[in-house]
């Protein structure tokens, strides 16, 4: 996979979630995602950015436009140095939450993208990588 363009943004507080949505939409437009695909990746980003703020105490988003030789995609890496997730399987389950949300963030975000990978260790933080291909 080649990286055609990359950048990063901080996710410090809930106001930054709005900025994350805007930058992800800009990048989705750069590779001409359809309106539905734009909406899906922006919504997934909103969920993951909020998780980074609520559970991770803030984090970083790395944006990449990638190519696998045939197609382009938008790859987003959400990283935080929060408490980490003890049971990833449980965290991905719809309706499960340790916070005040509806427990749709992780599982829902996974359904909105083509590739979803989560790495987390307790005490170290969480790194979630998503890709939506064009």
């Amino acid at each position: 996979m080649t990286i055609l363009k990359n950048d990063m943004r901080y996710i410090r507080n809930s106001d930054d979630i709005v900025l994350i949505r805007q930058v992800v939409r800009e990048w989705a437009l750069m590779i001409q995602f359809s309106l539905v695909d734009q909406t899906k990746i922006v919504t997934a980003s909103s969920e993951l950015a909020r998780n980074a703020v609520e559970y991770g105490g803030g984090g970083v988003l790395y944006l990449q436009i990638v190519s696998d030789g045939i197609r382009k995609g938008l790859k987003l890496i959400f990283e935080d140095k929060g408490p980490g997730i003890a049971d990833i399987g449980l965290a991905l389950k719809d309706g499960y939450t340790t916070g005040e949300g509806m427990g749709l963030g992780l599982g829902g975000a996974r359904r909105l993208v083509n590739e979803f990978n989560i790495e987390s260790s307790v005490g170290q933080g969480t790194k979630i990588t998503i890709i939506r291909w064009k």
Binding site: V36, Q38, T39, T43, E47, L104, G107, R111
Partner: peptide
Amino acid sequence: AVAITMVELG
């Protein structure tokens, strides 16, 4: 597009 996304989100 919002309706489609909301359903997939759950």
